[in-house]
Amino acid sequence: MTRYVLRRVLLGVVQVVLVMAAVFFLTEALPGDAAVTIAGDNPDPAIIALLREQLGLNEPAWQRLGGWLLGALHGDFGQSLVGPRAVADIIGAALGPTLLLAGLTLVLLVPLSVALGMLAARREGGRIDRVVTSGTLGLYSAPEFAMGVLVVTVFAVQLGWFPPTAVGSGSLLGDPAVLVLPVFVLLLRPICSLSRLVRAGMIDAQRAEYVRHVRRLGISPVRARFAHALPNAIAPAVQQLARTADWLIGGVIVIEAIFVIPGLGTTLVEAVSARDLPVIQGLAVVLAGTTVLVNLAADIAARGLAPASEAGR
């Protein structure tokens, strides 16, 4: 396991560096640059040339990329090109709302998905199973932006139960009602996919020989289901949960835009519009590093939950 973890960590470091380089050169390929953005709507060529010199944009691309990579190794993500703020401060301010939304979603997602999947798997093909299967399939096919607009229209505009956006809220924790609709929309698709995986895993596990064996030993059906079938059943769902965490930490740009939440997604859109390369690169590091860590944790958890299936690979 130690060698496996070290190998995955080294691979993750390489992936993060490649992501940073790819983001850098893709941004370089876009028309214009930060100097043009800073100069305004009626730019003076002399001012643009001066800005490019001050910002170091006249240096070769590979040289600027090398400087950025060396600085990142020391925890220095540089300064924003369009404002006198450190990139770390900008990302730190945006990280709080995204982590809050992601954390609340994950806390609710895991128990709800497991419970729904186990409920559907108790009697395969039964009424509850058919309702859960068809309902989750229908909800999963609906795009987030459509569900977001729908819930805002119904629960915020027409019924007036919750605030439609986070505009005017001093902090998300200070006004918990602002979080209800975004978290609800964020839960819809992941809970559908995870519950279906848990259902399929539970059905397969309950048919497995080891579950039949423990039942022959006199173990109660409830204990056999929770202590023996469930750990193996949720192993595939752990991988999907990792992908869901990546999606959530990434900011869920559409959801943040609908509910006007100043998270990582909103910050990324603003940085791309302003050609603020250091902020884009800093976000790339955060998102790529999160992806590596979350998937590593998921793989280790999956091996621990279903060692038999992993040993055969």
Score class of each variant (00 low, 15 high):
85 R>F: 04
86 A>W: 09
86 A>F: 05
87 V>I: 07
88 A>W: 07
90 I>N: 06
92 G>R: 12
93 A>H: 03
93 A>C: 00
93 A>W: 00
95 L>W: 12
96 G>F: 14
97 P>I: 00
98 T>R: 11
99 L>M: 13
101 L>T: 05
102 A>P: 11
102 A>M: 10
103 G>W: 14
103 G>A: 07
103 G>F: 13
105 T>C: 05
106 L>V: 06
107 V>Q: 10
107 V>S: 11
108 L>I: 06
109 L>S: 08
109 L>Q: 08
109 L>P: 10
109 L>K: 09
109 L>Y: 06
112 L>P: 11
112 L>C: 12
113 S>F: 02
113 S>A: 12
114 V>H: 08
114 V>P: 09
114 V>K: 12
115 A>R: 04
115 A>D: 02
116 L>A: 09
117 G>K: 01
118 M>G: 04
119 L>W: 11
120 A>R: 02
121 A>L: 00
122 R>G: 04
122 R>L: 12
123 R>M: 09
123 R>F: 13
124 E>S: 06
126 G>F: 05
126 G>I: 05
126 G>W: 02
127 R>M: 15
130 R>I: 11
130 R>Y: 05
131 V>Q: 09
132 V>F: 00
133 T>L: 11
134 S>L: 10
134 S>P: 05
134 S>M: 09
135 G>D: 09
137 L>D: 15
139 L>W: 11
139 L>A: 12
140 Y>T: 13
141 S>D: 12
141 S>P: 05
142 A>P: 02
142 A>E: 04
143 P>E: 08
143 P>D: 08
143 P>N: 04
144 E>F: 04
144 E>T: 13
145 F>D: 09
146 A>Y: 03
147 M>K: 06
147 M>P: 01
148 G>H: 05
148 G>F: 03
148 G>R: 01
149 V>N: 00
150 L>M: 14
150 L>Y: 10
151 V>S: 08
151 V>Q: 09
152 V>G: 10
152 V>R: 07
153 T>K: 08
153 T>G: 04
154 V>N: 00
158 Q>K: 15
159 L>S: 11
161 W>G: 02
161 W>F: 05
162 F>H: 00
165 T>I: 01
165 T>F: 02
166 A>T: 10
166 A>S: 12
167 V>E: 15
167 V>A: 14
168 G>W: 14
170 G>D: 10
172 L>M: 00
173 L>Y: 08
173 L>T: 13
174 G>F: 04
175 D>W: 01
176 P>Q: 02
178 V>W: 06
179 L>Y: 06
180 V>H: 12
180 V>N: 12
181 L>T: 15
183 V>C: 03
183 V>L: 07
184 F>A: 13
184 F>Q: 05
185 V>C: 15
185 V>L: 14
188 L>M: 10
188 L>D: 03
188 L>A: 06
190 P>T: 13
